[in-house]
Each structure stands twice: as structure tokens, then as C-alpha cells.
Amino acid sequence: MHRRQFLHLTGLSSAGLLLSGCGTNFLSDLAGNATEPFNQKVEELLLKPQTLVPEFPISQIEPEKLLVNTFRSTPQIDPAQYRLIIDGEVAQPMQLSLEDIYKLPFRSMVIRHVCVEGWAAIVQWGGVPLRELIQLAQPKNSAKYVYFQSVDRYYESWDMASCLHPQTLMAYQKNGEPLPIDNGAPLRLAAPIKLGYKQSKWVTRITLTSQLLKYKGYWEDQGYEWFAGL
């Protein structure tokens, strides 16, 4: 009872802070803005764009540890109607159905999924490497960033190097089974090299851009770090 009341209180207070985040956290923003450009440089240097992050044996999967964080509610998606749009700085914009996507090269990986909140879970993800999709659409040289639009209006943006990493997948399988709707079915981002909030669920549109836009991502626009590399 006490614990519940306490949680309720902390929930309320953090919601309040979230709403007034920009104003009350002026100093935090200042500290972040002063050091983030340097930290991001270090993060970019640390990222090995073509080196595989070591994977885990299937026996080490931790199904109960993967928590579901959804910023609004779980959307309803009809798999037959579903289309993935790839557009922006590409020579060949396209729309793919799930059948088209399932025919593309498949990759399975067992990796550690790390949440910004501090928890982590070893998960198996299966799907098409994002770089296969990007190559299909024939990216222009000007393409430097990739935006992801989701059905629930969640949005994200990534640097191109991380998108082309061989373990960055558009996943439709989790722990050996079809991806559950709560985890982002029919198609979500999954990668061992970015924090969980970068890994959009229910993705319907992938847009290549030449620069970062004013809106960088749902959480980033509220103060989270943009690069969020692991």
C-alpha cells in the first residue's frame, strides 16, 4: 500500500517534471548542451560501423526481462494493408508489403537490448537488415540521416553509419516467434548498437535525409541524447 502510494506520487511528480521539463531543467540542458557535442564525437569514433557486436547463445535469452515501453497506446495494424514506405534522398522510392519484406535476406541475432532506464535483456531478433532496404532504394550520396515514422506517431532519426551496421535490423521476429504487437509488429527497428528508445516500433516509413531536421525524435525533442550509441 505504501509502496503503491509512493509510486503514484513519484509517477505524478515525474510527469510534472516532464511537462515543465524545459523550464525547470535549464541547468541540466546547459550541462548537456555544453558537453554533448564532444561526447557525440567520442561516440561516433567508438562505433565500429562494420564490426559485429558479439552475440549470445540462444540459451541465454531473457524473455521476462524485456519490458514493454510504449509512449502512447498499442496501435491496430492490418498486416494485409500494411506498407513500408522508403523515400527521401533515394533514387528509387518504394512501397513494400510484408510479403515483399519477408522475401528479402533474413538475419537472426541474439543481442543485449539496453534501455535508457538502466535495465537490459538478452533478446533474439529476426528480420531484414536495414542496409538491404536502404540499398534497394538506391540512396543518393547526399543521404546522411534516416528518419523512422511509426503508426503511433513515434518518430526517430539515426546517423547513416549506424543504419548500415550489419546488425541493424527491421525485425519481424522475437525470440523465435512472430513479433508480438506489443513489441512493434509487424516491423520494428532492432540493433545492439543503440539504446532502446532509438529502436522504433510499428515503423511504416523510412525517409533518408541530407541533414538532421528540427525534430530529431520523440524523446530527443524532450531532452534525451540524440546519438545514444552503445
Binding site: 531543467n25 541540466s28 540542458d29 550541462a31 558537453t35 554533448e36 561526447n39 531532452g223
Partner: peptide, 30 residues
């Protein structure tokens, strides 16, 4: 204890919320 576990009293925390805490943590770490 995870989310249900005991939390640290806000008086002893810096940053106001998770992103603010991370801002400070990554600013001071170097």
C-alpha cells in the same frame, strides 16, 4: 527491485528527470 523497488529521495538527486540526470552524468564524467 526494479520499478517497484525503493527509490532515492529526490533531495539527493540531480537533474530533475532521467534525461537531466544523464546530462549531468555525461557532463561530469570526462
Amino acid at each position: 527491485g526494479g520499478r517497484a523497488g525503493p527509490h532515492v529521495f529526490p533531495l539527493f538527486t540531480l537533474g530533475g528527470w532521467l534525461a537531466g540526470g544523464r546530462d549531468w552524468h555525461f557532463a561530469a564524467m570526462t
